[in-house]
Nucleic acid binder design. Structure first.
Lengths: 364, 364
DNA sequence: CTGTTAGCGCCTTCAG
DNA sequence: CTGAAGGCGCTAACAG
């Protein structure tokens, strides 16, 4: 289909051998630096010189045919690279792989299971050494069984398929610790009335995060049940709406304000948001209400979204989702390592990124 | 380096032949649907059945060794996929390539020329059919000459290297038309006092855009020389600062306010920004000054940055940079096409995206 | 210490 | 209409 590669044909190992006056075998030995073979220093040098003179580089397709290793890793992601998080994980895997002289064959599936399957097949046809399977928005996935034909690692997702669950390394963000840390930052700054403006109620991330948050609250002697808790949709508009509700002291229909006292009447001093976009929505509602950040209200985001969190005004304190680190970790699993992986998923830390949106109110 | 692919060895064409009772040759003929060979309907069916039964898929590495075509395209980009624009172009190329059964081997170089060179070599070693070379932020690039070993296309960049300039198709955004269109939108809405808060002064995009803007102004009878023009740095903070300056009526040191009259004293009714991030900075400054968008001030962005322009409040009107389209166009050039490409770069349109940040003031 | 031989899986003349 | 033989570029046994 593609235009024939116009290139003048590359030199082969035979060409190198001819020039150096040795056999292709010797060329191979020298280039692969084989320890079990003894090569004269002189011969080695002649080969190396010939390689340099011809600009010889081994044909990896041929090498792959012979060795079954292509130094190529398949990377399957649900979201296109346009998504900064998808891109972050790709970048992490890319950089790690590159250090090991491997490259990434990247496919995105738009969440279509059929594309997903054929993508994996296409990768296998190209003899990739391994497959990394990534997703934006942590969740359970169903994988084509053929994926086990090759070492594979799950990035930001997991499976319950019995045939796969034990064989695939899995890396996930440690959302519970992230939620805990986010709440702790607020608590440590003296906040006691914290409104929780979380994302989609059912999501894995929201559930885990909430658990961490509750633990932090409890530890600090704040009753989680009296804490204002709302679920949004991870988008700016819901951050905006929920913040208005909170400010109005109104309890929405879906509000899960559990306290029996008139908790709704006490305005919170801090907002803990489901992600940075919701935090941005909160900024807008706060601005409209004439409240200043962080003087009148502290705001905590989540995600550390590029081109957003740091650019907000004031810059948003948030918790970083370790997409890059997950991609990197996943690639790392494909290469010989000293320590065997433990059983079960590996959780990577979500570091707190402190910026200007949080005020200390210790002098409560 | 990579763990050996654990997979049970795949069936070969010979296996299929054995099962179907034919030679591997016949299998090849059937699978490649060769018109110059006559195969009995019955034989063909037996082969196809055997293929299905074994789940046979040709080994593309072997195929590539034989045919010199790997159905794989190298994609070199300066920015990692984290950048939404880099990702947009990748997605465009990916989707087009996929329709032609090709996959993308993606490398990013972090603008390091050495990495750039070795990336291209690594791609060539893997026998890619072609290379797409992309950049974020249109500019001139210097390419390793070896890139011509294979068909290549330049995405959002161009070269002046004499050995390459005539042989490489180039695709660029039509910034001049984009600038013209952006200004026209404002002009058509009745705005006459438009402050131009552009990006980096020296950039290709800024220059082209400015030319288009000036043309639109002139056509509308507005003297471009009396128009407030500032250059920033494409980031939110400069949009913020420049807007404050404009509002204060102050002329900064670097101001290129050309009018001789007291142009600084007339507050503009519209801001035309160098990109969406600067527009966002303008939003912040406007908000602080108590000005409402679009009632008190219309704002026009540029880029249509994902997760930003549409999410702002009010949603930002902007001009879309056609990264996806450029990636797609580039991939298209690699496949047989009906019309030969003209000489010189191909300019792709930057469509205006109208949202809520612009008010009509026809009743001036 | 190095060369010869064989074969990875596929496609492609060339015979039959 | 189909099969046998050869080779793409490389590496791995096995000789010498």
């Amino acid at each position: 289909m593609v235009l024939a590669g116009g290139g003048g044909s590359r030199p082969t190992a035979a060409d190198v051998g001819r020039l150096a006056g040795v056999s292709p075998t010797t060329v191979s030995f020298v280039l692969n630096d084989r320890q079990d073979q003894v090569i004269t220093q002189a011969t080695r040098q002649r080969v190396l010189d010939a390689v340099r003179e011809l600009g010889y580089r081994p044909n990896r397709a041929a090498q792959g045919l012979r060795t079954n290793r292509t130094a190529t890793i398949g990377y399957v992601t649900d979201e296109a690279a346009v998504d900064p998080f998808a891109g972050g994980a790709i970048a992490g895997a890319h950089d790690f792989a590159r250090r090991h002289r491997s490259m990434l064959l990247v496919v995105h599936t738009n969440r279509d299971p059929r594309i997903r399957r054929s993508a994996i097949e296409d990768l296998l046809d190209r003899q990739v050494d391994a497959i990394l399977f990534a997703v934006v928005g942590t969740r359970r996935v169903t994988l084509p069984e053929i994926i086990v034909k090759v070492p594979a690692v799950l990035v930001n997702c997991f499976t319950v398929q019995s045939s796969l669950v034990s064989s695939l390394p899995v890396v996930l963000p440690d959302e519970e610790a992230g939620g805990y840390a986010a709440a702790r930052v607020l608590l440590d700054a003296g906040h006691r009335e914290i409104a929780l403006l979380l994302g989609t109620a059912g999501s894995w991330a929201s559930r885990k995060r909430l658990r961490g948050i509750r633990r932090a609250l409890t530890e600090a002697g704040v009753d989680p049940r009296t804490t204002h808790l709302e679920h949004g949709n991870f988008r700016a508009d819901s951050g905006y709406q929920l913040t208005r509700q909170v400010l109005a002291g109104s309890r929405s229909a879906g509000s899960r304000l559990a306290g029996s006292r008139s908790a709704g009447s006490r305005r919170p001093t801090a907002l803990l948001c489901g992600n940075d976009r919701m935090a941005y929505g909160a900024y807008l509602a706060l601005g409209e209400a004439g409240l200043r950040i962080p003087e009148d209200m502290s705001v905590m985001g989540y995600d550390d979204q590029a081109d957003l969190a740091a650019d907000l005004h004031p810059a948003l304190s948030t918790v970083r989702l370790p997409y890059y680190a997950m991609g990197s970790w996943a690639a790392e699993q494909l290469f010989p390592r000293s320590v065997a992986p433990g059983i079960g998923p590996t959780y990577l830390p979500c570091p707190v990124v402190l910026r200007d949106s949080i005020a200390s109110i210790t002098g409560l």
